[in-house]
Each structure stands twice: as C-alpha cells, then as structure tokens.
Design a protein around this nucleic acid. Sequence first.
DNA 1: TTAGGGTTAG
Length: 627
Amino acid sequence: MYKFKYQTLFIPRHSKLPLFSSYSATATALLDPLTDPNIHIAQAPKPQFSHTLDPKFYLSTLINCKNVAHVRQVHAQVATNGMLVGDLIVANKLLYIYVQHKYFDDSYPLFDTLPERNPVSWSVMVGGFSKNGDYTKCFGTFRDYIRSGEVPDNYTLPCVIRVCRDTRDVKMGRLIHNFVCMFGLRFDHFVCAALVDMYAKCRAIDDAWRLFDRMVKRDLVTWTVMIGVCAECGMANKSLALFDRMKEEGILPDKVAMVTIVNACAALGAMHKAKTVHNYISSKNFSLDVILGTAMIDMYAKCGSVDFAWETFDTMRERNVITGSAMIAAFGYHGQGRKAIDLFPMMLRSGISPNRVTFVSLLYACSHAGLVDEGRKFCSLMHGNYCIRPDVKHYTCLVDLLGRAGRFDHAMNLIENMTVEKDEGLWGALLAGCRIHGQVELAEKAAKSLLEIQPKNPGHYVLLSNIYAKAGKWGDVAKIRELMSRRRLKKIPGWTWIETENEIHQFSTGDRTHPRSKEIYTELKSLSKKLELAGYIPDTNFVLHDVDEELKLGILYTHSEKLAIAFGLVGTPEGTTIRITKNLRVCGDCHTFSKFVSAITRRVIVVRDANRFHHFREGACSCGDYW
DNA sequence: TTAGGGTTAG
C-alpha cells in the first residue's frame, strides 16, 4: 500500500539544506507508517515534500511527527524557508514539542535565537523547566521574561507557582502572588487554582482557605486539593464536610477525589463514614483499581476493621507491592502478626517482590505480636535475599521487637553498631520497651538521647515520668515535672473521638460539654462500682499532676477514653462494637479499665491510639498488654 | 502556537 524506497535517514541538526525534495502525499499519510513498531527510524521512508511557505502545513506536519528526528527535519526545513522569522506560531510549536519531550538541547538554542518572542514562547520555556524540575532555569527564564518588559500571563504564572509548591518555598510563593496581583490576575481561575495548591502544599492553610473561598469558580481539582490538605493537617472531619459541600454545589467527584476522601476517612478512623464512602464508591460504579483499592485497605485498617480491609484486598483484581504492604501493615496494626507473615509467601507466589516498606510492615507486625525470631529472620532475608540495607525504620522495628521481649542487650548491641543515623523514633522505641520492663537506667539513657533530638516534645518527658512513677521514684517524677515547667512544656491534652451513625463526638479529660454529659457521668459512676466489684483497681501512677490521691482518682476516672467509652455504652445499641480513636497512646489505667468494661458489658471495644489498635474482648486485649 | 492543580503502603 505504501510504495517507499527505504533508506537511512541522517539529518544534521539545524541543517540549512532543504531536506524534502518533492511533495507526493499529505504529511499525515506519509508519517503514518512510522507508528508501526516494526519499522525503525533508520529504515523509515523518506517523505517526499515540496517547498511550501504555508505555516498551517508545517503545524499539521509537526503535530503528526512521530519522533524527534522528524521534528528536527521539519525544523530544518522551516529554518530554510525563513518561517522561524516569519511565523512565530510555527517556532513556538517547535519549541513546545521539544520541551514536551525534554529535548532542551534543541529547545534552548531555538529559543535563544528567536528573532522575536511572544508570551507563548516564554510560557513554553518556563513551563518546560518547571515541569522538568529545573527550578533554577525556570526562575531564570521567568526573571528574563519580566526584565524583557513583557507582562507574564495566566499561562506562565501557574508554572512558576508550581515550582514554589514543589520546593515548598512559600516565601517565594508569596512574592509571585504579589506579582499576580500586580499583573491583575488575582481572579484568574488557573492562577488562583495554582496558588491554592501551592499554599496548601506549603501548609499555609489559612492562605489556601482565603483564596479558595474567594474563587469565583472552583473546579473538581481545587476542591480535591482542599479536601486533601484538610485531612493531612488533622482536620479530616472538615475534609468530609467539604466533600459533601462539593457535591451540593454540583461537582461530581472522580476517582482521584474518591481516593482523597478515602484517605480522609482513614485519617479520621471513622468506620461509619468509611462505610458511607464505600457505598458511594459502589453506587457510582467506580472500579476498584489498584490505587483506590489500596487506599480502601488502609482506610478500613485505620478505622479498626482488619476484616473489611482483608475483604477489600480479596476482591481486588490487580494488586501490587503497595497493596501487599498495606495489607501486611493492616494485620500489624491489629496485632495479627501471624497473618501478616502468612501473607508474605502469598505475595511472592503472585510474582510481587517485596521492597523496603514491605519489610518495615513485616517487622512492625512481628514486633506488635511479640514474634522475635520471625522478625530476625525477616531481617536476614531482607538483606540476604533482596539486598535491601536496613534503614532507621527497620532498626526501629527491631529495637521495638527486642525491647518488648526484654532483650535489651541485643537491642543496645544493635543500636551501638548501626551505621545509619539514629532518630527520635529509634530512641522512642527503646524507651517504650524500658517502660514495659521497668528498665529505669536504660530508660534514662534513651530519654537523654531522645531529648537531645526533640527537647520540646512533652510526650517524651511524660513517658520517662511514667517509668519513674512505676518504679516508685517520686523524686525523679518531681524533677521531670520541674524540668517540663522550666522549659514551659505542657503535657499534650488527650482527646478521644467516638463515632455514632451520623456524628463524631469528641471528649477531653473531665469534659462536661457534651449534651449527654449527665448520662455519661451517671453511666461512669455505675460502671465504676461494677468494675471495683470485678476487681479493677485504679492506677493513679498514670496521673502526672501533683495533686492528692482523691483528686488523682477523680482525674483518672474522667480520662477522655473513659468518657468516650461511657458514651459508647449509652449512645450506641447494645451489643455493637464501640470504636474510639485517641490522639495519644492509651494510658495504662484506661487499658485496664477497657479490659474490665469489655468483660462486664460484653461489648467489643476497639481503640485506635497513636501507635496501634487495641481490640478489647471479654476482658483481654489483642495487644497482649504490650503497647 | 502555549498553561496549572488532586490519588495507594511503613
């Protein structure tokens, strides 16, 4: 069908010689055979063109070029015919194609030698550098643009704003924002959307909100940006509200928006919301692809249901290493170390190779289930079979594993010989192990290193104080309290959330603001009598305040977890699982309290704390009292 | 002739 004489094409770049001798067919038809993967460039047919000065012809030819060699041919032809001087549109199109395909060696000389440049030429170059991550050249070109006396347009500015976002340079972002106002583009949709994204990613959330609220038209992507940033900044509840508002305004979510909202549910740990979102996904027929499915596994795991996470995993047609690692991590959060370990060979059998995150998840799962030998085996396997060198996260899991098992010699040996930089997580893991086993001296060492790295984190002081309290070292408890006061550090207030069908209820210690507060306290009082009869003894060591025992008891009884559990008992149907989320680690007394409550009320209580999940059932906890 | 922004695991 095509009658070509095959010959090698060797086209010198920027050749001044005419390269096409005669016109025989349309450019499109001539270039079509090149889409055939069996035809190599070197064998490609030589197109037969005649000279032409019609810019439309060249534009159409450029659009249909299938490789850079042909773009360069057209470039040379265009240069020969003087079109670069005569028609800036053709020159810009050439620039655009080179930049799109990252042929900066071609685009930059062309841009440099253009007899004239218009905003499109500048915009293409600035955008090209921005997209390619060459921030210095992007800003350099933008600066030259402004110096040339031109006013940047709504095409160029978003490219520069993107660089500020990628480099998290909010200072420069604000400077560009000033330019935006100067150039009268503050209401431009594209510019505004880019600014909202930049502020959101730089965590300048107030600025992002201000602009978002002011936007005349907000499209799906901008809504998604705001929904995502709210969840990341600990305002997942606001994310969900924003999602509802978006739908009310007639914007239909796409799959990316759904993944974002699934993440918000995961951050919130709200099971009812998670189910509602899942129903929405099903009703709108979003396919459960690898990204959405993996996000849902994570969501269910973080909402306290490893079973739903597994169901999702099981339904997915396509899985990758991220899916597998997410499921292993899900088992790990919930203390189901064996299941996490069993998933590993399944993953290998399906042809998925583990990566460093997979091993972190596995080691975490082993650690939270007290599987010391298995953890050590995974560590050797990681290094021996997969050539993955352990990083600080792997070491942290190992220290955690050894610390929980009381193998402090091994843990210290590991820490002393590790070659990667030690971080607060590593020392925190050792400190947590010391707390479990009452290792006061080692705890002091760990705390010293920890406080050198993070001197302003009150949680570390509280943990050390609890260790002293457990050992009866009240003088040291007092010293820690003084140190905290001298450093003006306050214990992070504990918050607990509990979700009912339509609402999320939040409690702080001693909270009486809830509309059903009276009922909650009555329930707590009646519960305390039953618990004492069942053998529960409140442990006031967990109260850091310097107050008398009676007051300590009072404070202990109104910890936010206990208020949330009491509300769960009165506010949810009998027999249903009570699911609560805490911002801190669960306190030892509340842990014992929850075990007793689960026994006397026959309720399953699922607590998500800052570290892991606890499933309280019939007087026992899934963590085996290691947390 | 040109452009921007949102998505999965520890």
